[in-house]
């Protein structure tokens, strides 16, 4: 009789669903609705490279010391510099960074003495062409444009 009642009122099903619903807490859900909501990566995340500029003057912080290029295990950084005849100082002209070969080890940003080169929290590095993955100075200073998705 008891067994029959249990079967009629679906006691086992309710018990099972209770476990399911207990695990439905939003804090327990790990799935992210990716393009709609972006994961919040850690502060120290090593993502897309950026060449910092001075916030007020927009001048580059890079002193063209070439240390990042020397530190890079893949030798993917090329720093172009010219000596300014008036001030007798080296000034940055070009800066190329091949993101397609980068393994984001962070050695370049460790080597940078003026915190000009930095690996940022951007992680969307897809490109339609191989050439598109080779970033020039302008791209590095402005950073990748945020991708917009149309639904």
């Amino acid at each position: 009789m008891k067994e029959l009642l249990k079967a009629v009122f679906l006691v086992d099903l309710i018990k099972g669903l209770a476990v399911t619903f207990r695990n439905q807490k939003p804090s327990l859900i790990y799935t992210e609705q990716y393009p709609k909501e972006r994961p919040l990566v850690a502060e120290r995340y090593r993502g897309a490279p950026r060449l910092n500029v001075h916030p007020d003057t927009d001048e580059t912080l890079c002193i063209a010391c070439n240390l990042c290029a020397l530190a890079c295990p893949e030798q993917l950084i090329v720093v172009g510099a010219e000596r300014n005849k008036e001030t007798r100082r080296k000034e940055l002209t070009t800066f190329t960074y091949d993101v397609s070969r980068c393994m984001f080890c962070g050695l370049c940003e460790d080597a940078c003495p003026v915190d000009a080169l930095e690996l940022t929290q951007d992680f969307e590095l897809a490109s339609y062409t191989r050439e598109g993955a080779i970033w020039d100075r302008q791209m590095l200073e402005e950073g990748p444009l945020p991708t917009e998705y149309k639904h």
């Binding site: 850690a42 120290r44 962070g106």
Partner: peptide, 14 residues
């Protein structure tokens, strides 16, 4: 997550 917060990478941590 602890690795990512500590060194910025999850798998190939360096």
């Amino acid at each position: 997550k602890i690795f990512e917060k500590y060194c910025g990478a999850r798998l190939t941590t360096h």
